[in-house]
């Protein structure tokens, strides 16, 4: 009550210091991110042209292009999605719509998915090698690689799809039930349409994860660079190509950077697609509330 009525300003200096610290942290992260992407793009873009995208690699990848690698990558992705999407949808429906009787089972499923999500990808690689390549006799093949990746991306797909289904307003569900709709009709006509953006986001996130993966593929899909003719052929994914060029091919840097550029552009497009889908869903929820 002193100080002649005008109030002092304690804390203002500390505010400035903390402000500086957090701006610095965020600015530093942004700078490093720009450094990494910028540097890779700068090294890689000069190497990328139509020929690079349309010819097969020669001289261990030092010359030629990456078309067979791109095709292998797409085939691996196709296998992964074919195996993972139905499983993920089914599990998500189960988790989102479980009755109390099954809640213990749901807890087990969730826990196992959490653990599965945390398993190092190289461990998936070993597992895939043991199960698909050796025991099932598929050898180093696109099928082995795709199935291994399917196990890997299951958790993220299920989680996002489950959240999308859960975010369908409960009143909608109740009203549909009150009209006497059966559970399948409810799912098909009410819940799936409302949850489509969120489930699409899960799908896209899964694709991003699969595209970015290297370690799980080395010992399952292998690293043959010739054009695959069937899913039983070995095929090298983009990320594996980057790794091989950078580590095992002398003077492979430039081609590694070029491939990394393509890979990064793909993954960045996919990530931003996912986040815009998720964002849309959030706005939808807010306006509903």
């Amino acid at each position: 009550m002193s100080e002649g009525g005008a109030f002092s300003r304690p804390g203002a200096r500390f505010d400035r210091i903390l402000g500086a610290v957090v701006w610095l942290a965020a600015g530093g992260i942004a700078a490093v991110l720009i450094w990494i992407t910028g540097d890779t793009l700068q090294r890689g873009l000069s190497e990328v042209d139509i020929a690079f995208l349309t010819t097969e690699p020669t001289d261990a990848g030092r010359r030629g292009g990456i078309v067979s690698v791109v095709v292998s990558t797409l085939m691996i992705l196709a296998v992964t999605l074919t195996a993972a999407v139905p499983l993920a949808l089914g599990t998500a429906v189960f988790l989102a719509d479980v009755s109390a009787r099954w809640s213990a089972a749901a807890a087990v499923v969730r826990w196992s998915l959490d653990v599965l999500a945390a398993v190092p990808s190289i461990v998936f690689g070993l597992f895939g090698n043991a199960l698909f390549c050796v025991v099932l006799g598929l050898g180093y093949s696109i099928l082995s690689g795709g199935l291994t990746l399917a196990c890997m991306v299951l958790p993220v797909m299920i989680r996002t799809a489950e959240q999308a289904l859960r975010s369908v307003p409960a009143e909608l569900r109740m009203n549909a039930a009150a009209l006497g709709l059966r559970r399948t009709a409810r799912l098909w006509h009410i819940e799936f349409p409302a949850a489509v953006p969120g489930m699409a986001a899960g799908l896209v996130l899964g694709i991003g994860r699969a595209l970015a993966e290297t370690a799980a593929l080395i010992f399952t899909a292998g690293y043959a660079t010739r054009m695959p003719t069937s899913v039983m052929d070995s095929g090298r994914a983009l990320s594996v190509h980057v790794y091989e060029l950078a580590m095992n091919v002398p003077m492979g840097d430039r081609r590694a950077a070029a491939t990394a550029t393509i890979l990064m552009i793909l993954v960045l497009c996919i990530t931003s697609a996912a986040s815009s889908l998720l964002h849309r869903r959030r706005i939808f929820r807010r306006s509903e509330a």
Binding site: I36, T40, A212, A215, S239, A246, A256, A260, L263, V267
Partner: peptide, 21 residues
Amino acid sequence: GLLELMAGIPSVVFGLWGLLV
């Protein structure tokens, strides 16, 4: 948004940047 992008960058790209830069 930047952080989400960063989370999506493939590990080989981080590795390549680490190796070359």
